[in-house]
Amino acid sequence: MTADMNQTPAVDEALSVSNLTLRYGGVTALAGVSLVVPRGAIVGLIGPNGSGKSSFINVVSGAYRGPYEGEVRINGMDVRHMPAYRRAASGMSRIFQGVRLFDTLTVEQNILLGGHIHYSTGYVAGILRTPPARREMAARREQAKEIMALFGDRLLPRADQQVLSLSYANRRRVEISRALMTSPRLLLLDEPMAGMNPHETEELTDQLRALNHAQAMSMLLVEHKMSVIGDLCANVYVLNSGTIITQGPVGVIQQDEKVVEAFLG
């Protein structure tokens, strides 16, 4: 681990984005976007399809590697030159608009993969199965079990199943568990409720709220279901055509004419 990861500055902002501009060829996907996720808060990001929400998350998480203008700070660190895996190590993780799991791995193996960056014993010790490597592996498996337990009996009995055999909702739970295994202080959630029925949506909403309360985990939530945004987010940013058109509490932005126009055309 590098020095800048160990010496994370104490800041009040889990995520701070200033004047982010992103162009794909001649298309401006994001134009001067500024957004802050205070430490311990859940912030919403909404907007019509094609407004730039996923582009924003891709830049922040490092999935997009090309040039951009502006500044992105995660837990106080400028991440412009930081590869994606080091952003994960610095306390940021994400889930994807469509669930992206490692299909040849089991539930437990998928979740354990999230802890990869925190292994301290190294590849050689792992291959030689030295006592410290065995202890670390046991500790990680215990941690994975605790994370699976957050979802009650949804994942624990299925720990050894291939993820392809799971229901969509359980695949989403595995993806969230894998993200939690990276020990994030900032979690980027790109439409986590997509494809879930009302009961599953309510259950996951409660679980995200519990995570936020119990671990003071900051979250940026991109979501189309306004009830979820209303339940979880104190502050919401509205993105339209790559520009933040307004921000504020859900009740306020829902009355904003610019927002109504953006969503209804």
Binding site: Y85, R100, H116, I117
Partner: peptide
């Protein structure tokens, strides 16, 4: 996805 999950 592996890289985004912290795999170098």
């Amino acid at each position: 996805t592996a890289e985004l999950m912290g795999v170098p």
